[in-house]
Write a protein that binds this DNA or RNA. Structure first.
Length: 341
DNA sequence: CAACCGGA
DNA sequence: TCCGGTTGG
């Protein structure tokens, strides 16, 4: 879900080609959830093997990654580690919401209401440990760097972008900006299309980039004040935010705050975690410097065997993808990324 | 979401 | 080659 500051940031539309030759730290969990919720049949059921193992995440990771590589982008997938203790309540609440959605999905299916079924199905599934491990395995077989964050993936991605080891962080959420990433890419997809919820209408949804400095100067605030805005409107750690405060009022409050201790002078804070602790977490989260952001040679046959033998993918399709991945790797290592074209 | 297929 | 509908697992 992430921090609710979308209305305040300055997003600039880009083309996927604009990212060619660049390394991008991708929020793996965020991306996998998109796949899990969006790669569905018309009745809302995900892709599955004959044994009922869900393979929507596998499909998304495989094709999306191959396409990025073909466009000269080096994706660096950053996986979440241990969530901070104060996120536990949110994590539990989300599991309950998913259980609820699952029931409603089944009811809608019984009633033959496909529209509702699709809606509830999207919210009904949880990433499993097996999906996460399989995604890592697919990426490694593709020769794509996998980074294990000690805590939040968005924090780790921001750290890598700040150091200049990657050009930007990519996620649908805005948290990486609070964690200090100089750039955030959203809608890092090939088709650039998105279905409007509840309607049979598709809208263009092109990739966009949000620059932290640009956003801060447009708002006339510091990163510290952006964090204050975030924790007032709501984050994963205090999901509802302060009652009655949207982006506009939060901005006004933040402008009056010199330090996090000032927050409680303006708003009533009722969450378990203190605003100062939350602020300090965003300002200085747990991260690691032990990671690699370079491509390795892909294991073409290994990839084919894993997808075909263990997950019932079509050999023709996977072989085609694997060849594209191999071609991309050769091109990247021969020319270097600067001279992609 | 992205690949594939068939008709324009 | 582009497009809309369908399939993938």
């Amino acid at each position: 879900m992430g921090v609710k500051i979308g209305d305040l940031v300055t997003a600039v539309e880009i083309e996927i080609k604009d990212l060619s030759g660049k390394k991008i730290a991708i929020d793996a969990f965020n991306t996998m959830y998109q796949f899990l919720s969006k790669i569905r049949q018309p009745d809302g059921s995900p892709l599955m093997t004959s044994k009922g193992e869900i393979t929507s995440v596998h499909s998304g990771i495989l094709y999306r990654t191959a396409n990025l590589l073909e466009d000269g982008i080096i994706p660096v997938y950053v996986f979440d580690g241990e969530p901070p203790e104060f996120k536990r309540e949110t994590v539990e609440k989300r599991r309950e919401e998913r259980d609820e959605a699952k029931k409603k999905w089944e009811e809608a299916l019984k009633m033959g209401d496909l529209e509702s079924a699709q809606k509830y199905a999207q919210a009904a599934l949880l990433l499993t440990e097996e999906m996460i491990e399989d995604a890592k395995k697919i990426l490694k077989l593709m020769g794509v760097p996998v980074v294990q964050a000690p805590s939040e993936g968005e924090a780790q991605a921001a750290h890598m972008a700040r150091k200049g080891d990657v050009f930007a962080a990519a996620s649908q959420d805005y948290d990486s900006l609070l964690f200090g990433s100089p750039r955030l890419v959203r809608n890092l997809t090939i088709t650039g299309k998105r279905k409007l919820p509840g309607k049979d209408v598709y809208v263009e949804n092109p990739p966009e980039i949000i620059e932290l400095e640009r956003t801060l100067s447009d708002l006339g605030i510091t990163r510290e004040q952006l964090i204050i805005i975030g924790i007032i409107v709501g984050t994963d750690y205090n999901p509802d935010g302060i009652k009655g405060y949207g982006p506009k009022r939060a901005l006004e409050v933040a402008k009056k705050c010199k330090k996090p201790e000032d927050i409680t002078r303006f708003v009533e804070w009722s969450f378990d975690i203190s605003p100062v602790d939350l602020y300090n977490f965003f300002l200085n989260p747990p991260v690691t410097d032990s990671y690699n952001v370079d491509l390795s040679p892909p294991d073409k046959e290994g990839l084919i065997r894993f997808m075909v033998d263990e997950h019932e993918f079509s050999e023709d399709r996977v072989r085609k993808v694997a060849e594209r991945v191999e071609e991309s790797f050769k091109r990247a290592s021969y020319k270097g990324l600067e001279a992609w074209f």
